[in-house]
Design a protein around this nucleic acid. Structure first.
Lengths: 224, 224
DNA sequence: CAACGAAATATTGTTGACAATCGACATTTT
DNA sequence: AAAATGTCGATTGTCAACAATATTTCGTTG
């Protein structure tokens, strides 16, 4: 059905993809982009009007986001974007490190050559981005790298969790300061992860994946 | 809070506790008790009528449960109770083991004497239940034991995850066969967890907690 | 008799309206 | 003047009706 690029495409998509999902994505974007500050209330009617839908889908979407930890609900008062405490953020880093280690271990256990090649290539590309001082490119590649691992692990639930925790931690609107040197260190860790995966060393892969993420945590604590 | 036991308590609580939460609990019970078989569709209107509410709250509750992995939604077809594959269940066991280890490690790190005493007592009580061949009592105590650890870890997100994963795995409606001997083994593991926590040995506690849950996994695979 | 197709039915998706509740401001009382 | 109380506007919680979609039924046809 790649033909339907007619004017009524939006209409078509609305039928195939329930409004709730569209609304959810948009709400998520609004929250993660900080368009509504932490602690602020979400006005259902206003948001609904803004998106051109009714309050129903907005409520449903908000409910799921609240369950994801991006919003907090207060009875008869509405939903507020969650204020993430430092302690909460640190716990999130821990959990994410745990899951990441698990994913790496699974990938190492499966040992598929194509994936290994992909990962290795990603690491060299990131190294190039660092030399070019192209931070934004590095971040994009870094994201893709970890996504690739999550995919390759064939662990649906863990993958979902990993992504969800990643979004949740973004509520802490801190810039992780990354000079060129720390990027190099980070990419060395990537290299170690791929080494372990290629070697099929499950426990080494787990450790490398976990440590890599825990280092992100310590980098956060250092900025306090 | 022994005060509000007046006749209009139900009325009060309805106002303080949105319908959506009540509906959610009831839906969860229906699913986990297997009153609707895996793969079956949930009829919104029917359930709403059954609970004496409108479809709105039912829909919202269903969304959150779907997001928890207890239901799957298909556009324009509704929500179905999830059919958990063996692979999914095994992954859930892994994740739960990971989180459990993390929780144990945190408790060991905090090292509060009162908690240690509680846990130790729970272990001896479980031992008594085993000698009395009182399985249901053992299960209740076991649940309380792990809840206590999750509480004591002061890790809100991890605790929520742990509980959520526990519910999710119940979708596999397999009886974990537990003779008296395997209960003894299980409780020995409990003992080891408490030992490590009392000793303040973080890594030992993590390992003990993880292994204890992974043993549950192997017990499952053995029944296949 | 099986296969196909079209009406009929059932169910979900969405909406707008109504009721209940909360916060803020004005008013009254001490 | 300060505290308590009453009222008003705004917002959430809930509902019932409407529109869109999927499933079933039943008649028709090759």
């Amino acid at each position: 059905m790649g033909l339907g690029n007619s004017p009524e495409q939006t209409f078509e998509r609305r039928r195939q993809r329930p409004l709730v999902l569209e609304v959810r994505d948009e709400l998520e974007r609004i929250i993660l982009d900080g368009e509504i500050a932490a602690g602020e209330r979400l006005n259902e009617a206003e948001l609904a009007a803004q998106m051109g839908v009714s309050r129903g889908p907005v409520r449903e979407a908000a409910r799921t986001l609240a369950h994801d930890g991006l919003l907090t609900t207060v009875a008869n008062q509405g939903v507020f974007v969650r204020e993430l405490s430092i302690e909460d953020a640190l716990e999130l880093y821990d959990l994410r490190a745990l899951i990441a280690g698990y994913l790496c271990a699974r990938v190492a256990d499966r040992a598929e050559r194509r994936i290994n090649a992909d990962l290795r290539r990603a690491v060299t590309e990131m190294a190039r981005a660092i030399e070019d001082s192209d931070e934004s490119r590095y971040f994009a590649l870094n994201l893709a790298f970890h996504d690739r691992i999550a995919d390759a692990a064939v662990a649906t639930r863990a993958r979902r969790l990993y992504l969800s925790l990643g979004k949740e931690v973004r509520l802490l609107r801190r810039r992780v300061l990354c000079g060129q040197s720390s990027l190099r260190v980070s990419n060395q860790e990537h290299g170690r992860i791929v080494d372990a995966i290629e070697a099929g060393d499950v426990e080494a892969a787990r450790a490398a994946g976990t440590i890599h993420h825990l280092n992100g945590k310590t980098r956060l604590t250092e900025t306090l």
